[in-house]
Structure formats: C-alpha cells, structure tokens
C-alpha cells in the first residue's frame, strides 16, 4: 500500500477496498459497519424503548489546519454533530461519515484523523455505522473535508424549543468563551502569536444528560459554534420575541483569549466555540442546574450570564463591565483582525 492517498483510493477498485478494510473497518469496528452493506440498519423497537422522537442532523467540517491545539478535524466532526443532537435534547446514537480527500494526503494523516474520530465517538457514546470516501484531484479540495450526519432519540417529555424563552428566565453558559476560535487563529500561524490556548472541542451529550435529569423544564439549549455566543443569543431573542440581557462581567473568558482579542481587535462574543452550550431556564431551577453543570467535567466553569426580559423589539443587550449597555448585533461576515 502506498503511503499517500491517490485517485485510485476513491475509484471503487482494489485500492479503495484495501483502504476501507485496513483503516475504516478496523478503526471504527462495529457490527453494522462489518456487514459491508450500503446502509446501516436499526431495530426500530429498540429505538422506541428509548424515546418517542428521532432526531437527525448533519454538518460538514472544513478546518485549516487539520490538527490544532486541543483537537483535530476528526474530533471536531464527531463532537459537532453529537452536540447538535444533544442540545436538542436527543441522546446521540449513530453517526455517518463522508470523507472528501485531496489526492496526496498522507495516509498517516488520514489514519490519525480516523483514530481521533473513533476515540471521540467512544467518549460520546456513539457509533460510526456508515461512511463514504471520495478522492479529488489536487486543488479539488483543501487536504480533507468531512461530513457527518447523526441520529439520536429524544425521550418522552423532553421538548426543547428556542421559541420558549420567557421574560424572567435565566441564561446559563458551560464555561470559557472563544477558546476554539482563538486556538484556530493562532494555529494558522499567519499572525505569529505564541500562546497555549487550546480548542474547547468536546462532546456535550453527558453534560446535557445531567442537565435534563436535574431540570427537565429547561426551555432551550444551543451550542455556540460559528458566530459565537452573540449569534446564539440573537437567535434565541428572535425566535422567542424577547430581549436577552447579558452581563459582560459574568462572561467567562480566559486571560489569554482576552489578550489575543485585545491584540487583534477581536470580540470574544463572536469567537467560535466547539464545546460550549447556552441554556435558558426558569429562574427557580437555575441555581440547582448551575451546581449540576459545575459538577460535570464539561461544565466546571459554568456561569449564569444573564436573563431574559420583555422586548419591544427582540435583541441582545450587553451590560458592559463599565456599567453601560449596548445592543449586540450579528456579525457582518467573518471577524477580521484589525489595527484600527
């Protein structure tokens, strides 16, 4: 076997078969995959014992560089889809994965990514049951793109909806903001900054599970990925026709992330996260929920960051550490480093 991916690995012939057997089947090893059918098959009765609705989601992962402090594209591809299921109240069960590979990628790189996916899947208690591989000519994509889709089951009685936030509810966040975005900016190396910021990339299904057990009346949750906390709060505000009021002094931001934001003129409110969720809960349940979140490894630095209030026009209102207030809008395009 050659040590780089060639177009032959995507051609459907022997090379592809060998890659599938030697890498994907052995790493992801599970009964569904071992059948080598064109689709994974599930027993409906077993699924129905776990809940009364199926949740289904998909996301594609493109990240430069493929490996960054705190994670890699494989870990990201599993956590991202797991978290999209989890924040809807679903227990994530099965994932598919599609690889689009640029020819010339070292097989060792692909292997490292696939192993990272499997390790993360085990941590998140999900099984990768079906997959696909395509190889494109050089320049056809950037090294490696991954798509994952996931299914999960929502237990009876759990009904999370971003339309249900009500005035008086409190807003909770499970830890430091912006670690992923800052780690990626840094890992690209164009800005020649040195630091030890690692991505917060982590599966959240365990945390969500504990949260729902303690507090089934949680109104809604969402993971704050691209567009950061600001974007999630904006979506909550629009869907629930409320104002989301947050206090800057309560937002957990690491000193290093703050330092990087000050240097580059970025705002941590808009930096991406890959292991952070925002939850809206009735005030009466918030204190207990916060304790449960802090007791979980994925929520040790959780905080109540604000509250929901009545809105004449829905939006996000930030009370600055300086004591004044300002409206928070969504981003116009990507945040760019600035000198002005």
């Amino acid at each position: 076997m050659s040590d780089i991916i060639t177009l032959a690995h995507g051609s459907g012939g022997k090379a592809m078969d060998e890659l599938i057997r030697s890498l994907f089947l052995t790493t992801f090893a599970n009964p569904q995959l071992a059948q080598m059918e064109d689709q994974a098959r599930f027993d409906l009765a077993t699924l129905q014992q776990q809940g009364d609705r199926l949740a289904f989601t998909t996301d594609s992962y493109v990240v430069d560089p493929l490996f960054f402090p705190g994670g890699d594209i494989g870990k990201l591809a599993v956590t991202g889809t797991v978290n999209d299921l989890a924040v809807g109240g679903a227990r994530p069960l099965y994932l598919s994965c599609g690889f689009i590979i640029e020819e010339g990628l070292p097989i060792a790189t692909l292997k490292a990514v696939v192993e990272s996916m499997q390790a993360t899947a085990r941590e998140a208690d999900v099984v990768i049951v079906t997959g696909d591989t395509k190889v494109v000519p050089r320049g056809g994509c950037d090294k490696l793109f991954i798509n994952t889709a996931g299914v999960g089951v929502i237990a009876a009685g759990i009904d999370l909806s971003i339309q249900t936030a009500r005035p008086g509810d409190l807003i909770l966040l499970n830890g430091y903001l912006g670690d992923h975005g800052a780690a990626i900016v840094d890992a690209r190396g164009d800005l020649a900054l040195q630091n030890t910021i690692a991505s917060d990339c982590q599966p959240l299904q365990g945390l969500v599970n504990s949260m729902l057990e303690c507090c089934p009346q949680i109104r809604c949750m969402r993971d704050a990925t691209r567009g950061g906390l600001a974007t999630v709060l904006y979506e909550f505000a629009q869907a629930s026709a409320c104002t989301m009021e947050v206090e800057e002094s309560r937002l957990p931001v690491r000193d290093e992330v703050r330092g990087m934001c000050e240097i580059l003129g970025l705002d941590p409110l808009y930096l991406a996260n890959e292991g952070k969720l925002v939850a809206v809960v009735p005030e009466a349940a918030a204190t207990e929920l916060l304790q449960v979140m802090r007791a979980h490894p994925a929520g040790r630095h959780s905080a109540i960051i604000g509250r929901v209030s009545q809105a004449s026009r829905p939006g996000v209102l930030l009370t600055t550490g300086f004591g004044s207030q300002r409206l928070i809008d969504r981003l116009t395009g990507e945040q760019l480093p600035r000198i002005c």
């Binding site: 040195q194 030890t196 330092g259 000050e262 240097i263």
Partner: peptide, 11 residues
Amino acid sequence: ALVDVSGVRRE
C-alpha cells in the same frame, strides 16, 4: 524582543 500580553506572546 518577545512581548507578553496577558499570556499571549509575540516578537
């Protein structure tokens, strides 16, 4: 020189 801003360093 290497300058430290809140734990982030840059030449």
